[in-house]
Computed example of a mutant assay.
Amino acid sequence: MEKIAFLGLGRMGLPMARRLADAGYPLTVWNRSPGRAGDLTGAAAGAVRATEAATPAEAVRGADVVVTMLSDPEAVTELAGRFTADLAPGTLWIDMSSIGPRATAALHAGLPDGVALVDAPVMGSTGPAATGDLTVFAGGEDADLDRAQPVLEHLGRVRRCGGPGSGAALKVVVIGAIVASVTVLGEVLAVADELGVPQEQAREVLSAGPLAGVAARAFGTGSDFPVRLAAKDLALAGGGPVLAAAREVLLAHPEIAEEDLSAVPGALLRGR
């Protein structure tokens, strides 16, 4: 099995790295804040399943595949500057961060000779990350996608989107629609309150109609997608007026920045 370096052990990265360790891949991990490796390095379970590196460059040396899972384009760009020079020819870099096609193109431009990049952002929260039920939007050259496929299949259902940057682009489209729709639904519930429509009645009817999927996300529990990251993803979509307006609404409620997206309707209702 190919040796993997996994960089970024946040709320999504840690359970994803754990799945690769459980699959038996030789694994080296790194995180900006040390001490996140936990049971991967034996601290909790008593069995070492991964090696924790002190620096990104140390993590990727000797790796066949490098997986990055970070929060935004700035974090990925900064990290890339710390390890790309240490990538050996033949290395495959799979970036699973949600950074959009522009930042992905910049990563491609900075690759050393002989190094390939697959963009593979995901849909799903921490629960699906732990169970391998994420949706993976993968973009890249066919040969690179073929090589990435066995790794990605341990993390979720892989949808090949096309050439380099296409996975990053589709993620922006899908998440933009979801976040903006949940925000609009929150606004509609606030309007219902002003018009004297009982919240329970409004939610019931919205959940039974064409917006059932959006309502399920807006009213559901168990997901862990912070509002601040939802606002970041809307920014990746560019300057469309509807998406820009939804982003401004999210930024106007810093009190829920670390809460799941489902907190938006409640925040808008309280703000009326």
Rank of each mutant, 00 (worst) to 15 (best):
L185A: 05
F137T: 03
L189N: 06
V179Q: 00
A192G: 13
S166V: 13
E141I: 12
A143R: 05
T131S: 13
V151H: 14
L170S: 02
A148K: 03
A148T: 01
G165F: 14
G176L: 09
L152P: 00
A138P: 00
G163F: 06
T131K: 12
T131V: 13
L155E: 01
K171A: 11
S181D: 15
A168Y: 06
H154G: 04
T183K: 12
G162K: 01
L145I: 07
T135Y: 07
G156M: 10
A192W: 13
L152N: 03
E187G: 13
A180Q: 07
G140M: 06
V173H: 02
L170R: 03
F137V: 07
R147K: 04
L134A: 03
V173M: 02
H154D: 13
L152C: 02
G165A: 15
V182H: 05
L189C: 09
I175T: 09
E141D: 12
A168D: 04
F137G: 04
D142L: 11
D144N: 08
G165C: 15
D144C: 11
V136G: 03
T135N: 06
E187H: 08
L155W: 01
R160E: 14
A177N: 06
A143Y: 01
V136C: 06
L189G: 08
P164M: 03
G165D: 13
L185E: 01
G165W: 15
K171M: 12
A169L: 10
A143F: 02
L189Y: 14
R157N: 14
A130L: 10
R159D: 06
L145R: 01
Q149H: 08
L185I: 10
V188W: 10
E187N: 10
V174S: 05
L145A: 02
V182A: 09
G167R: 01
L185D: 01
V188P: 11
R157L: 12
L189S: 08
R147H: 07
D193Y: 09
P164F: 05
A190D: 06
V151W: 14
R157C: 15
L189M: 09
V174G: 03
V188R: 11
C161F: 04
V151M: 14
A130T: 09
A148N: 07
A177Y: 03
V182L: 14
C161T: 13
L170Q: 05
A143H: 07
R160S: 15
V173P: 04
